[in-house]
Amino acid sequence: MAKNIQSLERAAAMLRLLAGGERRLGLSDIASSLGLAKGTAHGILRTLQLEGFVEQDAASGRYQLGAELLRLGNSYLDVHELRARALVWTDDLARSSGESVHLGVLHQHGVLIVHHVFRPDDSRQVLEVGAMQPLHSTALGKVLSAYDPVAHSEVMEAERRSFTGRTVTEADAFESMLDLIRAQGWAADAEETWEGVAAVAAPVHDRRRMPVGAVAVTGAVERVAPGGTLRPELIAAVRDCARAVSRDLGAGRF
């Protein structure tokens, strides 16, 4: 292993120092306690401050621990909270696209469907909340694999089964597909999981830009990708919806 990174060690020491009881410390106290030059200490403190780990009292100029540290230990987003926040936006997506909408999260090496809005055509449909989808072939799963490092390692280690002639299973090809997804900001599934079914998905992020789920429009391949080309307005609508949900998760949490 390479040698430890000195600035990170110093940052950790500062956080321990500030965590020692309920106190605020000035720059010179911190610098002298840790045997650092003021300029060095200030640089590290400013970085910690930008990340939210340290806050500076406006009046005294002294430093204290930041709110972000509390959130770190408490960061799990409840999937039912995610559904409640997504409800209006996913309804509107189903309505504007004329197709069904799913919201999925990473769960036990697959995609757990946490919300499902019916295709608005009055046909008989079954609620798919609670169902699982594969990570490597569905639009939802590919978005999660591209953006969530945990999903990525799971999908790379797992056996990637071939469901149709179009399923991408080979590791290099799969990785370059994820690169493309990250570059364009959305993923597609054109009959890669089910014959005759196509989908488009985009990632949902929380207020710290962590990927917490994905939203997808799914429908018959003839409607979603007529002539083999995805409808561009569908891609735009899915991305708008994912952004709107992300915005709602970022705002109004506190």
Partner: peptide, 10 residues
């Protein structure tokens, strides 16, 4: 509440 729905076309 949401301000205005922007997805799709009205």
């Amino acid at each position: 509440m949401t301000d205005a729905h922007t997805t799709g076309t009205h």
